[in-house]
Amino acid sequence: MNATDTGRGAEAAGPVVRMEKVNKHYGPLHVLQDIELEVARGEVVVVLGPSGSGKSTLCRTINRLEPIDDGSIYIDGVKLPEEGKALARLRADVGMVFQSFNLFAHKSILENVTLGPIKVKGMKKAEADKLAMELLTRVGVANQKDKLPAQLSGGQQQRVAIARALAMRPKVMLFDEPTSALDPEMIQEVLDTMVGLAQEGMTMIVVTHEMGFARKAADRVVFMSDGAIVEQAAPQEFFTNPQSDRAKDFLGKLITH
């Protein structure tokens, strides 16, 4: 199965995600400051930065889980609508994987994955089941399909969450610290799944502290600090030759730990 095989017709040639002069405040806190970001089709962007620098907020504005104060965000050339049906439709094109998995606790693993295709896309149940089983097989949890989320390990739940997002055939996948809530021995299985996706050409924006993943899978590293994008570069370049003091400081702290 190929992640880029989305079954859609002709796709716009421009970037999959474009953020233009995006600003957001939480009260007095200017949490996103003039954010400019373009993510090309098939590109894997890793967002790094200290805690509280606005990485999650950035991620969440891209599918409008958080509204923005000004600026514009385009998904595949279409401006994010304010609310309502059009927004819901566009959200279906943006897969999201959360730190805390957020699987639907009252639904089986299989139902978690089929829910979107059936309820949002109007897919027939048999077809959705088939799609879900393909995806669950691919992330290695097909044998858990009838269990409830709480019966699975964290690593398994997160892989189901990835399958659930993929089932919508998204144009881009957002990952907000997908391994931060996991026990150490489960981190790798989730990262492996993500590396696989990246290799298949999925467009991805990944907030993570896993530098190994950034080195291995990222096309570009975006470094954020205090709500602003401070610098961005290819991973090799960023890790060996950071430009800003804040990036040097950030990387220095990582190494000493």
Partner: peptide, 14 residues
């Protein structure tokens, strides 16, 4: 948990 509603919105449910 709030995450349940966010996950529902994220897959495109209004």
């Amino acid at each position: 948990p709030l995450g349940q509603a966010e996950a529902a919105r994220a897959i495109g449910l209004s």
